[in-house]
Amino acid sequence: FFKKKKNQFFFKKKNKSGIKNGNNESNYLDDSISVGVIFVYIRSSGSSKSSSDGDNDLKACKKCWSNPTEVSNPSLSRSKETDERLTATELSYQLTLEEVISKRNGFELFASHLVKELSLENILFLMEYMQLKHFVTIHLQSYVTDMGYQVPICPTLVKKYLSPHLVQASLPTSTSWAICLDMFRYLYTQYIVSTSMALLNLSYNSSNTITRQMTELKHNSTIHALQPLIIAFDIAAKDVMGLLKIDPFCRFQLSPECIRYCEELI
């Protein structure tokens, strides 16, 4: 269920962008859509029993957010520590965030952990930014000297939720660049602007560098703006990774879900 909804989330949005972009329309990235989907995503992954009768999304979502215990898996009971469990515990010590998100089920497990803790925006930003980078790699590679920082999110997941329209090889450069710009604008309004719904916990340096780059676009929106944009967003991506590592990931490692994940790894 969780997975299905998530597919919808990424697909819906990217697909929408893909189709409209084919027509070269620029304002396809309607905030309300994506914010809506984030909420749907959170709600659906949060709890399976919250009724999906099309009731006020926010209300239901709020309910689920405020009762995170409902999310935890009930089948989990504190079993006696077997040998296997002990080694799984040891393994969970040594896991790194990079290792976890580079595997498909690890990524999903960690994302659902963030849902419980209400900090999903962090990993969503990284995911969408990596999708953007993937798009750039396909269509605009020759205009970039340095692709910069890569968050090692499971590549199949990154590709999976990109609309096929966006991946097809035959886009003219001008269209690709227009799409790419729109993606940047979307990330900016969705995560960086102080009024955005999914605002990130960024330092002034990170957010200001991006703001400066985005304002610069008003004067110069040629493809030469691509490299500086990547540099600016990379700072934020590193910031977000650092935050995830230092706070939520430490709790994730202690969670029963993570131990079970390690058991499976063994």
Binding site: P68, T69, L114, E117, L118, S119, N122, N201, L243, L244, I246, D247, P248, R251
Partner: peptide
């Protein structure tokens, strides 16, 4: 000292 993101209970 580290920044907290989200919520723990």
């Amino acid at each position: 000292r580290y920044r907290t993101t989200g919520m723990t209970e």
